[in-house]
Structures are given as structure tokens and as C-alpha cells.
């Protein structure tokens, strides 16, 4: 295991969607999430974290120390558990174990052990009923909502199916049913994230989130959409990951000043304008990554801050 991360990082993630639904809103019949005031599209922090977890589960498989606590779908572990129950049913000594967390040292050992085994607990933290620090582990990595650069216009696409679910449907509807899909024709989204080094390397509060784990996180952010194909998602891809690396744990500059250095522009027929500029009013809507440009202002970068472009 490499050493815990001891530098602060901020990152800007650009990803886009073409003819897909990046994140459905359960409140709006699975329409793409929208900011009702600006019509910009949203993708929740938890949706992004889900994809990171899925990628790590795929990339690392059964590698020790890289299990995923919040797993999705059927897990092999449940099969293992059944086997365990069959062979050693007496392992359920709940009463005995309930006393453990009262003891601070042991509870801490428990938390440390969970952190060492589960990649997502080490990275994002988890609420654990261990009775230490209000029973939760705060992970060093934090995401915020992703927001589309420009307003999006979700489309509702009706589709038909040449089969019915029940016999009654077959009789009533002649064996055909209709459904709906919501898509965003094109949207470029920008998300911000933070890596708080003390929550990785602090002797008591640190989760041990290591340099290797960080590298895996960057890899996950660059590739997570490549392994999340589905009928609903359309074509999603990470377009850019810009990382600000501070040369100390607490940081060398204000996060917002660093984020402001990354700017998005509209491009059309060889001319470049700021997003939202009146000059773009008569331009056709953006439909591809090439309709945007991203610039990074590297002039007068605060001392101790380094810009890394991962993809």
C-alpha cells in the first residue's frame, strides 16, 4: 500500500451526453434533472459516485482492499455468505459483538479495518454504527452536483414494442404497447470535486486513502462512462479532467479562484464566444463536443499549485 494522500486537490470534470439521459429525476417521471430556474441540466453527486464505485468494482474485481461497500445488483458476497451460514451457523454471536464499539480503541480498530478493506469507505466515507466520531467516517473525496454548461432541452421520445406483457394487453391492444424515453440531444456537464488530504492522512481521522487510490480515482473519472452503457444513457463520455494539485495538505489557494481559471466557450464556424453571450443567440444549438472549447488560465498561478490534465 502506498502512503496516504497528503496533498489537497480540486478537480473539474467535463463530461457530455448525446441522445441519452445522464441522470433521471424520480420526481419528474425519470426526466433528466433540470434546474427549474435556468433550465440547466443537473447530475447529482451520488450518481457520479455510483459510477466511480462501479468502475472500481470492475477494474479491481476481487483485489484485496478494493471491495465496494455500497454494491449494486447481485453480489457474489451474498453467495459466500450463504455458504458461510451453511458451514458455520454459530458465527452469529450478535450479543457479544454489540459490546465492542463501546470500547474506543476496538471501535477505532474496527473502523480502520473497514477502511482498509473497502475502497469506497476509504474514499467517500460511510456511516458506521461504531460509536466513534458520531459513528461515521468522513472520506477525503467530495463531489458536488454537475451542471450543464448551457440550458438543455430534454426530449420525450415515444417508442413502441411489438409484444405485450399480459394476455389481457394482447387482447386489448393488439399485442403492441407504447413506452417513453427521455433524452437530452446534447449536453456538456461540468462537475467540481475536492480531495481533502487531512481526511486521508490524519493519524486519527484519516481513512488511509492512498496515492494509488487517488490514481485509481482519476482513472475512474476518465473511464467510468465507458463501462456504463445502457439503453437510457445514450453516449456519455468524460471529455476533460483538470486537476489542481496543492503542494501541502491544507492547500495553497482558494478553491473558487482555481475553478474560475477553467472557462467554457462556444465555438461555431471558427468563432469563439463566451457561453451565454448575446453573439451566440443566432447560433445553432450545441450538438457535439467540438461546439465547445475549454480553456485553462495558467497565468499567475498561485505558488505551490500545479495543474494536471488527466484526459
Amino acid at each position: 500500500m502506498s502512503k496516504p494522500v497528503s496533498n489537497r486537490y480540486e478537480f473539474v470534470l467535463y463530461f457530455d451526453v448525446a441522445n441519452g439521459n445522464p441522470n433521471g429525476d424520480p420526481d419528474a417521471g425519470n426526466m433528466p434533472r433540470l434546474d427549474p430556474e435556468t433550465n440547466q441540466g443537473l447530475v447529482s453527486d451520488v450518481a457520479l459516485k455510483r459510477k466511480v464505485r462501479n468502475f472500481v468494482a470492475l477494474a479491481k474485481g476481487d483485489a484485496p482492499g478494493h471491495e465496494i461497500y455500497m454494491s449494486e445488483g447481485a453480489t457474489l458476497n451474498n453467495q459466500h455468505k450463504k455458504a458461510w451460514a451453511a458451514i458455520m451457523p454459530e458465527v452469529n454471536k450478535d450479543e457479544e459483538f454489540k459490546k465492542l464499539p463501546k470500547d474506543q480503541q476496538k471501535a477505532r480498530a474496527l473502523t480502520a479495518w473497514m477502511c482498509a478493506n473497502f475502497w469506497d469507505i476509504r474514499t467517500f466515507g460511510a456511516v458506521m454504527t461504531t460509536g466513534v466520531n458520531a459513528g461515521q467516517v468522513r472520506g477525503p473525496v467530495q463531489f458536488t452536483f454537475a451542471r450543464s454548461v448551457e440550458p438543455i432541452l430534454p426530449l420525450e421520445v415515444s417508442i413502441t414494442r411489438m409484444a405485450a406483457t399480459t394476455e389481457k394487453d394482447t387482447d386489448d391492444k393488439g399485442g403492441r404497447t407504447m413506452g417513453r424515453k427521455h433524452i437530452v440531444p446534447y449536453g456538456l456537464y461540468r462537475a467540481h470535486g475536492f480531495v481533502s488530504a487531512p481526511l486521508a492522512s490524519h493519524p486519527v481521522k484519516g481513512t488511509g486513502f492512498s496515492e494509488d487510490d487517488l490514481e485509481l480515482l482519476w482513472q475512474a473519472l476518465c473511464q467510468m462512462f465507458d463501462h456504463d452503457r445502457s439503453a437510457a444513457r445514450g453516449e456519455m463520455a468524460t471529455r476533460k479532467l483538470i486537476i489542481f494539485r496543492h503542494d501541502c495538505a491544507l492547500g495553497n489557494a482558494q478553491a473558487q479562484a482555481l475553478f474560475d481559471r477553467v472557462k467554457t466557450w462556444r465555438v461555431h464556424a471558427g468563432s469563439t464566444q463566451p457561453v451565454g453571450s448575446p453573439a451566440t443567440d443566432n447560433w445553432p444549438p450545441a450538438r457535439q463536443w467540438a461546439d465547445y472549447a475549454v480553456t485553462i488560465d495558467r497565468d499567475g498561478l498561485p505558488a505551490g499549485v500545479e495543474i494536471i490534465e488527466k484526459c
Binding site: Y69, S71, N77, K93, L110, W113, N117, F118
Partner: peptide, 17 residues
């Protein structure tokens, strides 16, 4: 978690969302 720690393997510990 305590019982898994004792027996030294993580099977059955995760939460299936």
C-alpha cells in the same frame, strides 16, 4: 464488521443498494 474482522474475510459485509 466485528465478526468479519475476527474471521478475517469480508464476505457478506457490503450493502446491496
Amino acid at each position: 464488521a466485528a465478526s468479519a474482522m475476527k474471521r478475517g474475510d469480508t464476505s457478506g459485509l457490503g450493502i446491496v443498494v
